[in-house]
Amino acid sequence: VTLFVALYDYEARTEDDLSFHKGEKFQILNSSEGDWWEARSLTTGETGYIPSNYAAPV
């Protein structure tokens, strides 16, 4: 399992994006889409796309 942590807060701009807060942890589901990764929040259980430059490996 690849775990990442949010470096900044992010507010979803589309219904496919995932809103999150700094410090929140994610499981990365798909990182082959370039700058946007499909991720599941370990806090909320929700799935959506996150900007890859807002996350770092745990």
Score class of each variant (00 low, 15 high):
34 G>Q: 11
1 V>Y: 14
52 S>V: 09
8 Y>H: 08
23 G>Y: 05
48 G>S: 01
50 I>T: 00
20 F>N: 00
41 S>D: 03
36 W>T: 06
37 W>Q: 04
49 Y>V: 07
16 D>A: 14
46 E>M: 14
3 L>P: 06
32 S>C: 14
4 F>H: 07
21 H>A: 12
46 E>F: 11
22 K>N: 03
31 S>V: 12
1 V>P: 12
8 Y>Q: 09
7 L>M: 08
57 P>W: 05
51 P>Y: 07
39 A>V: 15
52 S>R: 12
30 N>L: 06
21 H>R: 14
35 D>C: 14
43 T>S: 12
20 F>M: 10
21 H>D: 06
33 E>Y: 11
39 A>W: 01
20 F>E: 00
55 A>Y: 04
40 R>V: 11
30 N>M: 08
5 V>W: 06
15 E>M: 11
37 W>C: 04
41 S>Y: 03
32 S>W: 11
15 E>F: 10
13 R>H: 10
41 S>I: 09
6 A>R: 00
13 R>Y: 08
15 E>Q: 12
17 D>I: 11
35 D>P: 11
4 F>W: 14
16 D>E: 13
53 N>W: 15
49 Y>I: 08
54 Y>N: 03
18 L>C: 02
52 S>K: 14
47 T>H: 08
41 S>G: 02
36 W>I: 07
5 V>N: 02
27 Q>G: 02
24 E>Y: 04
21 H>I: 12
24 E>R: 00
19 S>R: 04
36 W>R: 15
14 T>L: 09
1 V>S: 13
11 E>H: 09
7 L>C: 10
9 D>Q: 04
34 G>W: 09
44 T>A: 01
39 A>R: 00
23 G>V: 00
31 S>N: 12
38 E>Q: 13
38 E>M: 15
30 N>T: 08
53 N>A: 13
51 P>L: 06
35 D>V: 09
22 K>P: 03
58 V>C: 11
25 K>F: 15
24 E>H: 07
44 T>M: 01
37 W>K: 03
17 D>A: 15
48 G>C: 06
14 T>G: 15
2 T>D: 13
52 S>F: 09
46 E>T: 08
53 N>G: 14
38 E>P: 06
51 P>N: 09
16 D>V: 13
1 V>N: 14
3 L>C: 12
56 A>D: 06
57 P>K: 07
42 L>W: 06
15 E>H: 12
23 G>M: 02
58 V>P: 05
43 T>L: 13
10 Y>C: 04
10 Y>D: 00
33 E>N: 15
18 L>H: 02
7 L>W: 04
34 G>F: 09
51 P>C: 10
3 L>A: 07
4 F>P: 01
53 N>Q: 11
36 W>D: 02
34 G>Y: 08
10 Y>F: 10
2 T>F: 11
10 Y>Q: 01
55 A>P: 03
41 S>K: 14
48 G>I: 03
27 Q>M: 13
31 S>M: 15
43 T>D: 10
43 T>V: 10
38 E>D: 04
50 I>G: 01
50 I>V: 06
40 R>G: 01
45 G>C: 09
14 T>C: 15
12 A>C: 06
1 V>Q: 13
11 E>S: 10
17 D>G: 15
14 T>Y: 15
45 G>I: 04
32 S>K: 11
43 T>W: 10
49 Y>W: 15
21 H>M: 11
8 Y>F: 12
55 A>I: 15
11 E>W: 08
46 E>Q: 14
21 H>N: 10
10 Y>W: 10
39 A>I: 05
21 H>V: 14
40 R>I: 12
52 S>P: 08
34 G>P: 14
35 D>I: 10
23 G>D: 05
28 I>R: 03
4 F>A: 12
55 A>N: 02
52 S>C: 11
39 A>H: 00
18 L>D: 00
30 N>Y: 07
34 G>R: 11
50 I>W: 00
42 L>Q: 07
43 T>A: 11
29 L>V: 08
30 N>G: 10
25 K>Q: 12
22 K>F: 05
3 L>T: 10
6 A>T: 04
37 W>F: 08
31 S>D: 12
48 G>D: 00
28 I>T: 00
44 T>G: 02
36 W>H: 07
25 K>H: 13
39 A>D: 00
19 S>D: 04
26 F>K: 00
42 L>G: 02
18 L>V: 04
16 D>R: 15
19 S>Q: 04
48 G>R: 02
45 G>P: 01
18 L>N: 01
26 F>I: 06
21 H>L: 12
28 I>F: 03
16 D>Q: 14
17 D>K: 14
47 T>M: 09
13 R>I: 11
10 Y>A: 01
10 Y>P: 00
23 G>A: 02
6 A>D: 02
15 E>A: 13
13 R>C: 14
42 L>D: 03
51 P>G: 03
56 A>H: 08
14 T>F: 15
41 S>M: 07
35 D>A: 10
46 E>N: 12
4 F>K: 03
44 T>D: 02
58 V>S: 07
